[in-house]
């Protein structure tokens, strides 16, 4: 959300949004959760009591206690520290995916909506192909095809998310392009590309932000699911889904292993979802999940 200085109305809108958010307790709760997670991710280096990667085999599978608040894993690593560093990874995945999918999806959607006709038809059929799969299935297939790694998982999830944004922006673009100021711009000789970049896309920004926030939660869940089935982050990366995946083997005797990373996923996603819900109510009452 970086408004340009020449867009005064945007500034005013932003301020209004902020005021409305502050008066909404659930939204504030969501925001607080996310800020806390964000801080934890940023400061994991200082906050974490132990090195998240270094082995200490003598301390493997210790239950939670005064020394290790969340216990240790099968390599004797401190689970609290790993979970803290894990916040970095999950948040990064979320934001990168949304930036890629939101950016590409918006452009694709704007192009389809603005040009219409055959371009629109072809683009949307391609989107339909992507939408012909449940998102998790397609993300899994792509991640498997590209080989398991964190970056590939990010790409796979982003790819799956593109049509959501494309559809949204296309719809908006269809209505925006009928507005008088577009015609005016065209008459004054503006090129199509310029119109898309300066009129169509900025006008869709609100909806994209709302959808982005709402999708962030989903993104984190899908990425964690990929890691859970071994198609995401690679060891010894402390990714939450991957931790649950290993922790599952120890579920019966070492309950803490899989429990804490899951709680953190849940909390983070709740944060995004309630913030997203509130944002939607404030910014754009039209979008419905």
């Amino acid at each position: 959300m970086k408004p340009k200085t020449n867009l005064h109305p945007k500034w005013r809108e932003l301020k209004l949004t902020g005021r409305l958010l502050r008066s909404n307790p659930t939204a504030m709760a969501g925001l607080i959760i996310l800020v806390a997670m964000g801080l934890m991710a940023l400061c994991a280096g200082w906050l974490a009591p132990y090195d998240p990667i270094k082995l200490s085999l003598g301390e493997r599978l210790q239950p939670p206690g005064a020394v290790h608040w969340f216990g240790t894993d099968e390599m004797g690593r401190d689970i609290l520290s790993r979970v803290m560093f894990g916040a970095r990874i999950s948040l990064r995945i979320g934001f990168v995916v949304i930036c890629i999918a939101g950016g590409l999806g918006s452009v694709i959607g704007a192009v389809a909506g603005y040009y219409g006709g055959r371009v629109d038809n072809i683009i949307m059929r391609v989107m339909d192909v992507i939408l012909s799969f449940p998102s998790l299935v397609l993300a899994m297939a792509l991640a498997a095809a590209m080989g398991p790694s964190l970056n590939n998982a990010i790409m796979a999830v982003a790819f799956v998310m593109i049509p959501k944004f494309a559809r949204l922006v296309r719809g908006e673009a269809l209505s925006v392009k009928e507005m008088p100021f577009i015609a005016a711009a065209r008459v004054s000789g503006a090129r199509n590309r310029w119109i898309i970049a300066h009129h169509i896309l900025p006008n869709c920004l609100n909806s994209v932000i709302v959808l982005g926030t709402l999708t962030l939660g989903d993104t984190i869940l899908i990425a964690a699911s990929l890691s859970f089935i071994g198609l995401g982050a690679q060891p010894p990366t402390p990714e939450w889904g991957a931790m649950i995946s290993v922790g599952r083997k120890f579920l019966l005797d070492q309950w803490w292993y899989a429990t804490f990373p899951g709680l953190f996923i849940l909390t983070t996603v709740i944060g995004f979802n309630i913030l997203g819900d509130a944002l939607r109510d404030i910014l754009d009452p039209r979008i419905r999940r």
Partner: peptide, 19 residues
């Protein structure tokens, strides 16, 4: 329902149900 839409399914399965 907020918990529902935010729940990692695999974790829920492991935790609540199995355990």
């Amino acid at each position: 329902s907020v918990f529902g839409v935010s729940m990692p399914v695999f974790w829920l399965g492991l935790m609540l149900l199995l355990l």
